[in-house]
């Protein structure tokens, strides 16, 4: 294995995703070929409708490409069954969505440790790791609060803590700060950068904000479903 290969965590070759609406074909992604290095903090940018979310969904195994090949952490994705993909997501990925996607019935801590519980960790391990993750996002004292008792920014940080609980190989984030005020947005981006710098966390983030550009290692620009 060459150094180059070892350092690449995601590769795509000719990746396409075409939506079919009735008889019309909407090519959301068009033959995208790219590599993401391990430990990279990459931003995906482009106009609305350029295919940013679509690309993230393909790489995050939330959707199935119409064409092309994805290799993640040495595994060819098209060779994985649906349930293998589910386990893959649980073990290797963390997600942060634009909307604060945490469960209203669980406390912050429970939301955070749910993926660890699903991996088979004991209750004690779950609590310890969950508290560590909450600590990391600065919400340790809110562990027992339910989502409805927290602000949008706090809920998003809970979602980030949940995304980090299983020490994911890759953290995916689709416009994680779009619904937040500038202070909360800043907090979250700082957190991402810290995670990336201190722990070498690979992060793939879709963003609209041009000011985010100087925080990241690299910007992947999309236009009409193609990398430019």
């Amino acid at each position: 294995m060459t150094n180059m290969e070892q350092d690449t965590i995601i590769t795509t070759r000719n990746l396409s995703r075409t939506y079919t609406l009735g008889t019309m074909k909407v090519p959301a992604l068009n033959h995208v070929t790219l590599d993401i290095r391990r430990g990279e903090f990459a931003a995906i940018m482009g106009k609305s409708g350029s295919g940013k979310s679509t690309l993230l969904h393909q790489l995050g195994l939330l959707d199935t490409p119409t064409e092309g090949k994805i290799t993640i952490d040495g595994a060819e994705i098209s060779g994985l069954s649906e349930s293998e993909q589910t386990i893959f997501r649980l073990e290797k990925f963390g997600y942060v969505f634009q909307e604060y996607a945490i469960l209203p019935e669980l406390t912050a801590l429970e939301n955070v440790y749910l993926p660890a519980m699903a991996l088979g960790l004991s209750q004690d391990e779950c609590v310890t790791k969950g508290m560590d993750a909450l600590e990391m996002v600065g919400l340790a004292e809110r562990a027992d609060h339910r989502p409805k008792e927290m602000s949008g920014g706090e809920q998003q940080r809970v979602a980030i803590a949940r995304a980090l609980i299983n020490k994911p190989k890759i953290l995916f984030a689709d416009e994680p700060t779009a619904n937040l005020d500038s202070v909360s947005s800043r907090q979250i981006l700082e957190l991402f950068r810290k995670l990336n710098q201190d722990m070498g966390q690979t992060i793939l983030m879709v963003t609209h904000e041009l000011e985010d550009v100087d925080l990241v290692d690299r910007v992947i620009w999309l236009a009409d479903g193609e990398v430019v």
């Binding site: 939330l62 386990i87 893959f88 997501r89 073990e91 997600y95 469960l103």
Partner: peptide
């Protein structure tokens, strides 16, 4: 519906 989608996205098996 959305919560179920999120659970599946973060890797919780359908059988669970």
């Amino acid at each position: 519906r959305r919560q179920i989608g999120i659970l599946r996205a973060i890797g919780i098996k359908e059988s669970i």
